[in-house]
Design a protein around this nucleic acid. Structure first.
Length: 268
DNA sequence: CGAGATGTTCGGCT
DNA sequence: AAGCCGAACATCTC
């Protein structure tokens, strides 16, 4: 499910537990989602510590825990395809998909993930863990420059631009629907190879990548509401949709291993 | 019942 | 070596 803006929205679901101590943890040891977490270490680090705060970055989240304001442990969560965070009553008992659960006196913080493509990580100590510190520059940061994108595309000459937009090292946070939205706004055919894009198209792609991230964060991330009505988003979920710009029936194909929809007239 | 799903990662080929 | 592609992961929903 989640891309950039959805991840930010989902992260905030656990804000209800900020400032409160963890009384107990439960995880489905042996399941894929928690393969990086040692249950004993998890208990030692988290039980008795306070959830201090959290951040989202691209498709990832990190939660800080400690005593007082001193950070002593970090929990990283990637939601994969079907991960969700929820708050449940203190009396909650985790079901089949409740893979990582933090109990507090007045509520329970639950991470569910039926398909288990997500991932939980744990780190000890006051230092930001390396896997978080080393995430690539965010699309909306100053470091996400046109030059970076240009260099990337010229290195990946033989890949369809749709596949390239899904590369998290260059476009962190962009997922399948955002990639289609970006290409629709940039009027670029998703099958175009990286090496075939003209400099003007690369510039537009770079700009629209930022615009789509900005727009999604202004809507979806705030209250999980849909993006503006004129976005391609609204027509891209099924065959037979019409281009919001020209009205032509949109086209569907698998590109870069993912279902892709675009307007065959507007995007060339 | 089969197909496909807003994601990553691995292994093999060029 | 770097880049490219397809399969695999595990479960649910349409």
């Amino acid at each position: 499910m989640p891309e950039l803006a959805e991840v930010e929205y989902i992260r905030r679901q656990w804000d209800a537990g900020v400032g409160a101590r963890v009384t107990r943890v439960a995880l489905h040891a042996g399941k894929r989602v928690v393969r990086d977490v040692d249950p004993a270490e998890c208990e030692r680090l988290l039980v008795g510590s306070t959830l201090l705060g959290s951040e989202a970055r691209a498709k990832q989240m990190i939660f800080r825990f400690g005593r007082g304001q001193q950070v002593a442990a970090w929990v990283g969560i990637h939601l994969g395809m079907t991960g969700e965070l929820r708050i449940e009553p203190a009396s909650f008992s985790p079901g089949k998909h409740g893979h990582f659960v933090l109990f507090q006196r007045e509520r329970t913080l639950v991470f569910t993930d039926p398909r288990m493509f997500g991932r939980v990580r744990l780190a000890a100590g006051p230092e930001v863990p390396e896997w978080w510190a080393k995430l690539p520059p965010e699309v909306l940061s100053d470091e996400f420059t046109l030059e970076r994108v240009t260099a990337f595309l010229s290195r990946r000459k033989k890949s369809a631009v749709k596949a390239l937009l899904l590369d998290q090292t260059m476009f962190p946070g962009v997922g399948n629907w955002m990639a289609d939205e970006i290409l629709w706004r940039a009027r670029i055919d998703p099958r175009t190879l990286g090496g075939q894009l003209k400099p003007a198209q690369v510039k537009t792609l770079w700009e629209e990548t930022r615009e789509v991230c900005r727009g999604a964060l202004a809507t979806v991330a705030i209250d999980f509401s849909d993006p503006p009505e004129d976005w391609f988003f609204h027509v891209r979920w099924a065959d037979g949709g019409e281009c919001p710009r020209c009205g032509l029936t949109i086209q569907t194909a698998t590109i870069g291993g993912r279902t892709t929809r675009w307007c065959p007239r507007c995007q060339r």
